[in-house]
Design a protein around this nucleic acid. Sequence first.
DNA 1: CCATATGCCTAACAAATGTTAGACAAAAAT
DNA 2: ATTTTTGTCTAACATTTGTTAGGCATATGG
Lengths: 202, 202
Amino acid sequence: MASLVVSRKDQIIQVAADLFKIRGYEATSMRDIAQQLEIEAASLYHHIKSKEEILEKICFSMADQFLTGIEEVNDIYFSAEEKLRMAIKSHVRVLTGNLSKSTVFLHEWRSLNGEKLIEFKELRDKYEKGFKTIIQDGINEDIFDDVDLKFAVLSVLSSVNWIAEWYRVDGGMTADEIANRISDFVMGGLRKKLVTDPHFKG
Amino acid sequence: MASLVVSRKDQIIQVAADLFKIRGYEATSMRDIAQQLEIEAASLYHHIKSKEEILEKICFSMADQFLTGIEEVNDIYFSAEEKLRMAIKSHVRVLTGNLSKSTVFLHEWRSLNGEKLIEFKELRDKYEKGFKTIIQDGINEDIFDDVDLKFAVLSVLSSVNWIAEWYRVDGGMTADEIANRISDFVMGGLRKKLVTDPHFKG
DNA sequence: CCATATGCCTAACAAATGTTAGACAAAAAT
DNA sequence: ATTTTTGTCTAACATTTGTTAGGCATATGG
């Protein structure tokens, strides 16, 4: 079943993700996807149940990766700052690891319907909660400013998520370099302003 | 022509923007828009030329507002920090002033075609350049860290743009409050780390 | 060597899409 | 009072959409 070579189904999903990223889910037709694979649209249905199944597979597989990352970080005992840096690193790695799928995860999930949509939103909230926990830890540890929690989380998530809008694989920055710079940046906004050394770089 | 009461055309565009924000441009049909106005789809065409014209009107009117804001800021002589705070304030005001249209401006512009798409991208680049100028000023003035310019701009824009994802009119925060908090936050990431006073709040 | 599974094809479908044409009523302008 | 404008309607259109049915070929496994 699962093998080293990419299954046809996975190929379809990846190609679909690439198109969804560029044109959006609704603007991408099954014939567009098929054309990219040089087959007919009807042939896709021997591998997938429906167009929406493709979207579900993308959204939930990414949700899974993002969640796994932050859960691992929260399981380990570390300082809040260390945790936040690790969480950001994990996030950027997942995101840059599959940019197309990540973009779909971030923007196209609203095309999900019914139970799947509810389920997805729950996972998304769970992920936000993971960051919230870390920042709350930081406030408790007196490391971070006592900023409004929700606001801080949103600021952090906005910084990391916007990467999907501008990151290019050949842009010269590795995932970890980006993660470090973002960490420095948001840390500057969160950390207690006690610094004396002008060359301090966090 | 232009009057105090909202023209039918403007009503259509506003209703369309609201739907585009929720479901996306492609997923919103002319019949959806018509239904919201309690008329038939065909009736829309006495006011607008095409579905895409609606999208164009939304995208370019918002681009105009955002650009006007930052140009005003850059015309005035002020410190870079002051300018950045003003630019952020202007941005948040425009954004919260019409959340639906702003969201369309941020996410649905890719459904534009041909010349209009190119034109729009130019305006968008021009806006980014406005922020870039401010931050460059700050670096020259030795107020901001010598961060990579492009990276800093993207960080700032990510912070302000993500607001569209979570801001609710009844959420208890005014536009200016949000602007101030974001300013504090990004300033923490940009400003030279020379602070000694632990109660310093920028 | 045969049976089965895999992967693709053509053809077709019902539904939904953006849009046009032409008619009719009410309001505004002359 | 009559013309013009404005705003809507019904009806229809060509196209595109996601999807299904059924068939044919190649590879796989007994």
